[in-house]
Amino acid sequence: MSEANLRKRTATAWGFLTPALVLIGLSVLIPAAMALVMSFSQAGLDVSEPLRFVGLANIRRLLADPMFFRVTGTTFLYLLGVVPPIVVGALALAVLVNRQLPGIHWFRGALYTPVLVSIVVAAIAFRWIYAENGLINGWLTALLGSSFDPIGFLTSPLLALPSVMLVTLWKGLGYYMVIFLAGLQGISPDLYEAAALDGSEGLRKHLDITLPLLRPYITLVAVISAIAATKVFEEVYLMTQGGPADSTRTLVYYVYDQAFAELEISYACTIGLALFLIVLMLSLVRYLFAGDRGLT
């Protein structure tokens, strides 16, 4: 290829990339840089006022804030309550639908349907289902009689967080199932046939073949679902608004609360910086544990 043609192809490639790079710069990179600067400054509500540099004052405030550590613990509890069931459930569903049966495509579509539902619609629907006069309590009242005391799924500090977790599980299982299904369909049937000759059948064949070959996919699903769980906001905002008694207040909701309720913009940016570092560490897990066997 001549140098002139190479320059022409390079210019064409940059021409296609430039609109996306400009959009990413305006919507992601520049706001992220501004948030980083504001983490070490004191920002007022008047945008015309210059930022006042305060050094590490916001970070010291963060480290002395008991609510920050509480919401961080709640966030990791949310992560631990969502990620293992998503990995196990999505993998089980993928194995279930990885069959050549009549109507299997419709079954796969039905399992994927929750992914297409807006999180706003899902949260409002589940809020009605969980209500004291909602669907679940209505069924239990009909089953157990009028003496049944309705369960406060979203008003009990013990039940609110698991109830919100269930919405995330319901909405995400189909998405991660598709990722596992793509991995399963890349495994040659000859491997299962060879394993059958060695006496590996049923669950044993999945332990011997499926799990080892799907290790990169399992790592991928675990990491991206953990990142999504760490950044959960819509479900909490629409269903509980961090309550009751702050039992469902997560890191992202705390950022929102500090920025838009308390108007502590700089402190909210500092919490956002801590959240960024947590997500960055979770992203590094993808490369540390997947290694050369990871997906590219």
Results as ranks from 00 to 15, higher is better:
residue 4 A to P: 03
residue 5 N to D: 15
residue 12 T to L: 11
residue 20 A to P: 01
residue 28 V to K: 07
residue 28 V to L: 13
residue 30 I to M: 03
residue 35 A to H: 13
residue 35 A to Y: 03
residue 47 V to H: 00
residue 53 F to P: 06
residue 57 A to K: 08
residue 69 F to K: 01
residue 69 F to E: 02
residue 70 R to N: 05
residue 78 Y to N: 07
residue 87 V to E: 06
residue 89 G to S: 08
residue 95 V to H: 04
residue 96 L to T: 11
residue 97 V to M: 05
residue 98 N to D: 14
residue 100 Q to E: 15
residue 101 L to M: 14
residue 103 G to S: 06
residue 105 H to T: 13
residue 108 R to V: 13
residue 112 Y to W: 12
residue 113 T to Q: 13
residue 115 V to T: 12
residue 119 I to Y: 15
residue 125 A to T: 12
residue 127 R to I: 07
residue 131 A to M: 08
residue 132 E to K: 15
residue 135 L to H: 12
residue 136 I to C: 05
residue 141 T to A: 11
residue 145 G to T: 04
residue 147 S to G: 10
residue 152 G to K: 08
residue 154 L to S: 04
residue 155 T to F: 08
residue 158 L to H: 12
residue 163 S to G: 10
residue 166 L to F: 15
residue 169 L to I: 09
residue 173 L to S: 03
residue 176 Y to V: 06
residue 178 V to C: 05
residue 179 I to K: 01
residue 182 A to D: 10
residue 184 L to Y: 01
residue 185 Q to I: 03
residue 191 L to A: 06
residue 194 A to D: 08
residue 200 S to Q: 15
residue 203 L to I: 15
residue 205 K to S: 13
residue 209 I to K: 00
residue 212 P to Q: 10
residue 212 P to V: 13
residue 214 L to V: 10
residue 217 Y to M: 14
residue 219 T to A: 09
residue 223 V to W: 06
residue 225 S to V: 00
residue 227 I to Y: 09
residue 229 A to G: 02
residue 235 E to F: 12
residue 235 E to G: 13
residue 238 L to T: 10
residue 241 Q to L: 13
residue 248 T to L: 02
residue 255 V to D: 01
residue 257 D to W: 06
residue 263 L to T: 10
residue 267 Y to H: 01
residue 270 T to Q: 01
residue 272 G to W: 03
residue 276 F to W: 09
residue 276 F to S: 10
residue 279 V to E: 07
residue 281 M to Y: 13
residue 284 L to F: 14
residue 288 L to A: 14
residue 289 F to H: 09
residue 289 F to M: 08
residue 291 G to A: 07
